[in-house]
Design a binder for these strands. Structure first.
Lengths: 346, 346
DNA sequence: TTGTATGCGTTATCAC
DNA sequence: GTGATAACGCATACAA
């Protein structure tokens, strides 16, 4: 009975805008106006500030969201948080922080069921925007989400046909440059450890590989195509197959960090020296690639600029809630970092 | 004027529980009960399910949160998303997903101002629980948060004196084992590249270093203490100082991955071979440490179990909202992974 | 079991 | 500028 009154330390409900209004002797509207940065009478402002202090008032974003339909939360659907996604997340988080928002993250580990679950969760949570790598299986559901008014931004992998913003890197161009580099060094038997071709980034990296070979008059040889499925295990399996070929490749282009690591591991276990026995170039750079002996020549995505671009796109989209144009696409260039893992053939 | 009616594709407001009730010819209460998994009449259930389908209804977590005071969102305040935090985040995210929750993340980059900003943001968002590494500067504010009823879980660094749950690893014991290993190999001039001693994890790792030396009768020599401040740059600076000593160390214990990388980089640039010229052991393991030549002997934190423990602690705490006991502490053991970077002295 | 009515903490729309 | 009041969408106590 007296419980509720006596126990005022642990379960006391937080002060509301109403409490503040009462304590400050003003109307709730006035407090609300103050909180939202509108001009109010000076005397009132001081009263309100004092009341907020004494009551320890914190405005409830959830109640505010009911009216404004804005949660100040941005969803991020990502497969994992490896080197690339970790770095990306860090910069992204810091970038949208400046707009008063934060990231609500869902990690799906390439499981389609979890992706759908994530979409449901995000829909329920009424996030302001969604950042995700496209996945064909999700077309209908993402379409619905977009249709319901949720701004979506794709990165890494496209989901074509949907009205959304997009931030990508020039996968094809960069891959071509990487393979060009190998050709420049005299390599002709160049293998690719490819990501999933259903992913646009996987497909484009393969196309870049193809471009380079075509342009330099080197015939595309299917036996030098090894699927690595983006994973470390896939990378080592791929190298395993490549090594037993009659004419094994003299150089490898690996389409991602985990696959590169797998490849290096397999090479090492089989006593193949990089770059003496075989050259390798990796798409995506890792801090330790520089320290590895030899240093791993790699394509570096401009992670910071990707994050900045994502933040900018979202900021601008959310600043004009009514517009719904066809969506913009940003394409960022990558750098190639020359280190020791690729050397002249022979 | 007719705008609102004609434009029913882009701006149509989402269906509410009320719409569902109307379409299904039942009362809102019934729909609510259905949504929350209570038993209702079969015919009604079918009507409701159909209505939800046709109306494309998605329950609003924000409205629900107003009543229940539960947002199903857990805050995570982290300094960065490097190897350790990235892996941790991934497992944590997947673990709490099973409880229907997701992580709202704020990245502070060791900036106290941003940490406070994060706390404010989290308070406003009415998260269900907060996971964070302790930081002395935040004592008062976190205290207030806890006092207001927010369950807090500390990891990595403690913030002593607060009533909260805690999930840590045995930093001291593991560090001692690492240094023991070096002593076993005959090293006597063993340096530590230390993290920040204000952080409990930094302090404990130092204590473990000290324990090992003490127990084996090796005098603690202040010139072998080098502060690395957790960063890569700090790591290389520390090694720089160590190398110009009259009697440089024959072995180094580095208290974190970035510092280890910095140390290796500096060693390499100065032509010092690991382990021929100097041995090194790292606290925290990285995937590429295995590939490095030589492999880096490292202490591996049980990241998955940390994540699981955090998830469990939160699950249980949230299952008993009324209890407010003194908080439990979980201490997890680390593994030491022997590779080639430490070898007998001489 | 089901329907009704009220409250959760804000913001926005009015008159004043 | 300010004060009163009506939503926002859901959950729930209570009556039926």
């Amino acid at each position: 009975m007296t419980e509720e009154l006596s126990d005022n330390s642990s379960k006391r409900r937080p002060a509301t805008i109403l409490d503040v209004a009462r304590t400050a002797n003003v109307a709730v509207g006035t407090v609300s106006r103050y909180l939202n940065g509108f001009k109010i009478r000076r005397a009132n402002r001081e009263q309100i500030e004092m009341a907020i202090q004494t009551l320890n008032y914190t405005r409830s974003a959830v109640a505010a969201a009911m009216k404004s339909d804005l949660t100040h939360v941005v969803g991020l659907l990502a497969p994992a948080f490896d080197e690339f996604h970790g770095a990306m997340l860090q910069h992204l988080s810091q970038a949208i922080r400046r707009d008063g928002r934060a990231l609500l993250i869902y990690c799906h580990g390439a499981d389609a069921r979890i992706m759908e679950e994530a979409l449901d969760y995000f829909a329920t949570q009424r996030i302001d925007a969604l950042i995700m790598a496209g996945a064909e299986e999700l077309y209908d559901r993402v379409d619905k989400l977009i249709d319901s008014g949720l701004p979506v931004v794709f990165y890494n992998n496209d989901l074509k046909g949907l009205t959304a913003d997009r931030v990508f890197v020039e996968n094809r161009k960069a891959s071509r440059r990487a393979v060009d580099h190998l050709i420049d060094l005299g390599h002709k038997r160049i293998a690719i450890i490819s990501g999933d071709l259903e992913h646009t980034s996987g497909a484009e990296r393969y196309l870049g590989y193809q471009d380079a070979l075509n342009e330099r008059g080197i015939a595309l040889d299917p036996k030098y195509f090894a699927k690595g499925s983006w994973t470390m295990l896939g990378g080592s399996d791929a190298v395993e197959k490549l090594m037993v070929l009659d004419e094994p490749p003299t150089a490898i282009f690996s389409a991602s960090i985990p696959m590169t690591i797998g490849a290096l591991k397999c090479l090492k276990e089989n006593g193949r020296k990089v770059p003496d026995d075989i050259s390798i170039v990796s798409f995506d750079d890792a801090p330790l690639f520089n320290l590895h002996e030899p240093g791993i020549t790699a394509i570096a995505q401009p992670i910071e600029r990707i994050a900045e671009s994502l933040a900018t796109v979202i900021r601008e989209r959310l600043a004009q809630p009514d517009e719904r144009p066809s969506g913009r696409t940003i394409n960022l260039d990558c750098d190639i970092i020359l280190r020791g893992s690729a050397r002249p053939v022979g």
